[in-house]
Amino acid sequence: MAKNDNAHALKFFHSLSELDGGAAEEFAREHPLSKSADYKKKFAWAKAQCEFLEERFSPEEIGEVRARCHCEAGAAMAKRMRGYLEKSEGLSEFARIFNEREKYVTLEAADGGLLFVYPECYCACVKRTPEPISRTWCLCTLGHIRGLMSQVLGREPQVELLETIKSGGERCIVKVYI
């Protein structure tokens, strides 16, 4: 049997197991992903995951499963962001300070919150192929940003995926309601 030891595969298995252990076992058996998988194999695995979830679960369940599959939000970034927020008189100033100091994402003040705007896809599983993928895949970023902003705000905010590059958008945009 093929190895299923890739960190993304393990995270997905545990996340899906919280909803449906049998489905998690089935997907792991049918779509193993090893640590040594190249970018083409990772993309195929990600695409198979989206199809599997979309065929079996509701949008709400899919959102929960994918959000638990996020890359961890760094404590150092959260600490810097808390500092920027403490120095700011409002969300516009917070976004300006953040954008002056951080480079991989920009913040924009928006009605009722902030927009996280990514100029490119940073996902190790799908970024290297020009082929699009279902928006389902990108729902993991909600867990990432929710985790980061929970550390910054001291409470869990509501987040919404507005646009993704891999599903045809020009940028990846997540709204954080504050």
Rank of each mutant, 00 (worst) to 15 (best):
M1W: 10
A2K: 14
A2M: 14
A2N: 13
A2Y: 13
D5V: 11
N6D: 15
H8M: 09
K11L: 12
H14A: 08
H14P: 07
L16T: 02
L16N: 10
S17K: 03
E18Y: 13
D20Q: 11
D20M: 08
G21A: 14
G21F: 10
A23P: 08
E25R: 15
E25I: 12
E26I: 11
E26Q: 15
A28Y: 03
A28G: 02
R29Y: 09
E30F: 01
E30H: 09
H31L: 06
P32T: 03
P32C: 04
S34Q: 00
K35T: 15
D38S: 03
Y39C: 11
Y39G: 06
K40W: 03
K42M: 15
F43S: 00
W45G: 00
W45Q: 07
K47R: 13
A48H: 02
E51R: 03
F52M: 08
E55C: 00
R56I: 02
P59W: 06
E60I: 07
E61C: 07
V65W: 04
R66V: 11
C69R: 00
C69A: 11
H70T: 06
H70S: 12
A75V: 07
A76K: 15
A78H: 06
K79D: 06
K79E: 12
M81F: 03
R82W: 09
Y84V: 05
L85A: 02
L85K: 02
K87W: 04
E89H: 14
G90N: 15
A95G: 02
F98N: 01
N99F: 13
R101P: 03
E102N: 10
V105K: 07
V105W: 00
L107G: 05
A109W: 10
A110H: 10
D111F: 12
L115R: 03
V117G: 06
V117A: 08
V117S: 09
Y118S: 14
Y118T: 12
P119N: 10
Y122I: 14
A124L: 12
T129A: 04
P132G: 11
I133L: 04
I133E: 01
T136W: 04
W137I: 12
W137L: 09
C138M: 10
C138W: 08
G143K: 00
H144M: 05
I145E: 14
I145T: 13
R146E: 15
R146M: 13
L148A: 08
M149Q: 09
M149C: 00
M149E: 10
S150I: 01
Q151I: 02
G154M: 09
E156Q: 14
E156R: 14
P157G: 05
Q158T: 12
L162W: 06
L162F: 06
L162V: 05
E163C: 12
I165N: 01
K166L: 13
S167G: 02
G169F: 02
R171A: 01
C172F: 11
I173C: 00
K175E: 15
Y177F: 15
Y177E: 15
I178Q: 01
I178M: 15
